[in-house]
Nucleic acid binder design. Structure first.
Lengths: 129, 129
DNA sequence: TTGATTGCAAACTATTTGCAGAAAG
DNA sequence: CTTTCTGCAAATAGTTTGCAATCAA
């Protein structure tokens, strides 16, 4: 449970998530990393993403949609997700305190608050026409 | 694509989601429905939930976590999700207009906004001690 | 050295699909 | 009747796990 080791694989996974300014899924990270390390396994990518998120070096996005996504940008922000293609982009939202501040709700000890906007991204708007 | 038929199976699925004041997953709905219709198949439950959501008779929750959840309560509200057990409860949140109102964001045509609180539910708090 | 990590393959979980027969309208 | 729906079984998609070999500290 203790010693986290920064292996070559984990370093590459981290770098790729950071420079992908998209919010890649594990599969997408795998494809990116594979260009530099063809022999890495998908399982290692999953385990690396998990371990890096646990270290707080990247963020695992807790949002709707089927697949999990990862974000190398640790600055606090919210997201818009395209309901058609699943693409996720950052948005700056002024969160008024009565929304943002974690508090007791229904007996839950609240630790976080996520705002997710849903919509149609520019590309899908174009495709739709 | 057109004619929706209210079959016996769909009626039971709808009733069970409505009276379960939890926010059941497809598997949970299957278990509930099976008590009244032992021969129903899981595939039918999935297809019924999908069809009923498409009719607007229940709501498919777009939120974090592994499994999809369904909500028979059509009144607008937000949710708290337990990060340990996945349980979801309703919360009333006053959404200030600058947060709630769909608008253009990053070129997206925004159609909705979800707020999800994350935390630890009372039961898991007790277990943790 | 020694516990943590990797690659591989197999296992799992949640969900979807093809199809022939059954039922709704 | 005709079209939609159901049950079953098989197929997918995404993610996780067991294990022996390998590597970081």
């Amino acid at each position: 449970m203790a010693g986290f080791r920064m292996t070559k694989q984990r370093r590459v996974v981290l770098e790729e998530v950071q420079k992908a300014h998209s919010h890649p899924t594990a599969g997408q990270v795998y494809e990116l990393v594979r260009r530099r390390m063809p022999r890495i396994s998908l399982a290692t990518v999953y385990r690396s993403l998990e371990a890096l998120a646990e270290q707080g070096m990247l963020r695992k996005l807790e949002m709707g949609g089927t697949q999990r996504r990862f974000d190398g940008d640790l600055y606090v922000h919210q997201h818009v997700r395209c309901v058609l293609c699943g693409r996720v982009e950052n948005v700056e939202v002024e969160l008024p305190p009565q929304v943002a501040v974690p508090e007791q709700k229904r007996g839950f000890e609240v630790t976080g608050c996520t705002i997710e906007y849903l919509g149609v991204c520019p590309e899908c708007q174009a495709d739709g026409q």
